[in-house]
Amino acid sequence: MGCFNSKFTKHSPGYEDPVKLAAETAFSVSEVEALYELFKKISSSVIDDGLINKEEFQLALFKNSKKENLFADRVFDLFDVKRKGVIDFGDFVRSLSVFHPNAPQEDKIDFAFKLYDLQCTGYIEREEVKQMLIALLCESEMKLADEVIETILDKTFQEADVDQDGRIDRDEWQKFVSHNPSLMKIMTLPYLKDITTTFPSFVFNSEVDDIAT
């Protein structure tokens, strides 16, 4: 019981027990506690309420809270598991867990499917993919003529849309990514393996006796 004991630390409203979160995710207890240090930083960057709103999420991603980005919006919506318009600590840890190098590949494939299924219809439709391509071209310096975009879409759907109904279902997606493993690179964040060394201050705020667990 020294000066640094923090058993009575006040937590934000969405805080959850690290032991429980570690049991449900690919993270160890120490990693969950280190993620809390990151979460506190992001969630207090605009409004210090212990929750990450869209502006704070964009600020963390782009260092600019006003930057509009279709994909960042989509990732935010998927992280906002309880559909409250904000990400609480439990949402943050459970969602990031999918990106852990040790997370099951199935979960990564499923998350990527949801990411591209913009309208949440259970299918990735050609129009959605076109919308995403156009959004990407708008935000980047890349310039592609409309015919080139259509050719890219034709080729992609010839390969991915096995039953040729103009949309990609979950089974088709699974087969497509198994032939194109580079698509899953964005679903693994090597940083998550080093989270305890990136945020070592978690040790001072730990409420778990054996932080090695």
């Binding site: 990151l38 980005n69 919006d73 993919v129 935000e139 080139v148 194109n180």
Partner: peptide, 26 residues
């Protein structure tokens, strides 16, 4: 690999909004 040689999803993964590693550089 030029953009027209990639499939649509390879292109989309180039988006900065999907680069979540930036979260850790906060």
């Amino acid at each position: 690999l030029g953009p027209s040689m990639m499939n649509a999803f390879e292109l989309i993964t180039l988006s900065q909004g999907l680069n979540l590693s930036a979260l850790f550089e906060t």
